[in-house]
Amino acid sequence: METRAAILWEPRTDWSVEDIELDDPKAGEVKVKFAASGLCHSDEHMVTGDMVLDPEIAALLQLEQFPIIGGHEGAGEVVQVGPGVTTLQEGDHVVLSFIPSCGRCPSCARGRQHICDLGAVLLAGRQIGDMTARHHSKSGKDLGIMCCTGTFAPYTVVNEATCVKIDNSIPLDKAALVGCGVTTGWGAAVNAAGVQPGETVVVIGIGGIGMNAVQGAAMAGARHVIAVDPIEWKRKEAETTFGATHSAASIEEAAALVGELTWGANADKAILTTGVATGDLIGPMMGMVAKGGRGVVTAVAPMMQEDVKLNLFDLAMQRKELVGCIFGNANPRRDIPRLLQLYGEGRLKLDELVTTTYTLDEVNKGYQDMRDGKNIRGMILY
């Protein structure tokens, strides 16, 4: 079939919205008609070149990462089912999990679906089953799809391992948000940080991930939730809507505030959710963490980032923990439905996350608004 998509032909260029050809699903695959797609910062990392496959790895996989259809945060309806699909049928509503879960690899078997072995092929951009493409340019060029999803298009073909079935009563535009941002941020606080009632928590960077870390920490019962961001309206929104008790414009301001609130004991947990993770942020973040406390790195760093400023004596002697986090360390098949249940009960805020909606043709405007700090989450509606 013919459809349209936002394509990144190479890093450091704009998204190009073009007509494309989409094949029917093959074995183990389904075709999905999207209702909406979130504009997540991870796609911006491909634009900037921070999330680009090493040429040697690309050569080993015998593929080209670009051109690629963007988007990995979406929800829609299954409109066609390929051979051998057993868990879905036409008419089902699904959220696409940007990390697929096979249910059989060692990680899935241990309850760690967020590091399923299928995640190894996320940046390859091809179908999980046979590493070929279902999306093609009008000239016949194979197109990759971001995180094996490609939600910057009204239709896509994905493996059933990527699809999480949800109740058909849930609004699909809001359900799309739990495909990445909500689950990642909420899980960063609840799963990775392990926030407990009465704790002091600092969230650094209040965008689509950080705002959900704020509401996750608040929902977990934190006594103090300090939202750190240079943009004033985001700090205000964090306090008035998402559960932050305090806010600060910088890490330095937050450190002074945390010291005052805790009588010098510092924060039990600190979560880094900036647009880009850089090594110089780790030391100041861990400096706010109490003895026996935990720092969580959820923000995405450039793939080749290796230098980190961190006092190792302080890390060891105060028994601090520095941990990584992907997809909120969640189990998408369990956590996506339960987060949507919390939304249905009015306990999880999704509507309030969407600052601006866009058409597919406005995708570049949406990302410029993100860079300019105008959105918590921008969303494409189809």
Rank of each mutant, 00 (worst) to 15 (best):
E253R: 01
H246W: 03
D351F: 12
K165G: 10
I271A: 00
K365F: 09
A217S: 13
I20R: 05
D43N: 11
Q65Y: 12
A175D: 12
M286T: 04
L381T: 15
V85P: 02
D369S: 09
R294I: 14
E64Y: 03
H72G: 09
G119F: 03
E21F: 14
T356V: 14
W15E: 05
R112D: 12
T262P: 03
A218I: 01
D142T: 07
A175T: 09
I68A: 13
Q89E: 15
V276N: 04
R334F: 13
A265R: 15
I99S: 07
N329C: 12
K165R: 15
E345V: 06
D229G: 10
E2N: 15
C163H: 11
G49M: 10
C108Q: 07
H135W: 04
T156F: 12
A248L: 06
A5F: 02
P284N: 02
D19W: 08
S107F: 10
L63C: 12
S169L: 09
E73T: 02
C108Y: 07
A265D: 08
N159E: 13
L322T: 08
P171N: 08
V81D: 09
P154V: 09
L353Y: 03
L281F: 05
D19L: 12
V296G: 03
M288K: 04
D14V: 10
L350E: 00
D23P: 05
T241D: 06
M219S: 15
P337V: 08
M286E: 05
A220C: 02
N159F: 01
E73R: 00
T245Q: 11
A133N: 14
C163E: 13
I336N: 05
M146I: 07
G221D: 02
L53R: 01
C148I: 13
G185D: 01
Y358M: 14
G111Q: 03
L310S: 02
E29L: 02
G150Y: 01
E321R: 15
V203H: 00
T132I: 06
G275T: 07
L322E: 11
G378R: 08
A270K: 02
G91M: 08
G198Q: 10
G49D: 09
L312P: 00
L96Q: 10
A27K: 11
P83R: 07
E232L: 15
E64F: 03
L381Y: 10
G210E: 02
A244C: 02
I209W: 00
F98D: 11
E362T: 11
G140A: 11
V202C: 00
K234I: 06
M286R: 04
N331A: 05
K269T: 08
Q89P: 02
G295F: 02
V195N: 01
E252R: 08
S250H: 04
H224V: 01
Q196Y: 04
G210N: 01
C108N: 08
E160M: 14
S37D: 11
G76W: 04
I68L: 15
Q318S: 13
P332Q: 10
L88T: 01
V202I: 01
M131H: 15
N191M: 05
V296T: 06
G295I: 03
I57R: 06
D361M: 06
F327K: 03
E237V: 10
M370Y: 13
C116T: 09
G179E: 07
G111H: 03
D54V: 04
T156Y: 08
C116P: 09
A277D: 00
A193P: 09
S107I: 02
K33Y: 12
V323T: 12
M219F: 10
V225C: 05
A218S: 14
I380F: 13
S42I: 03
E160Y: 14
T3V: 13
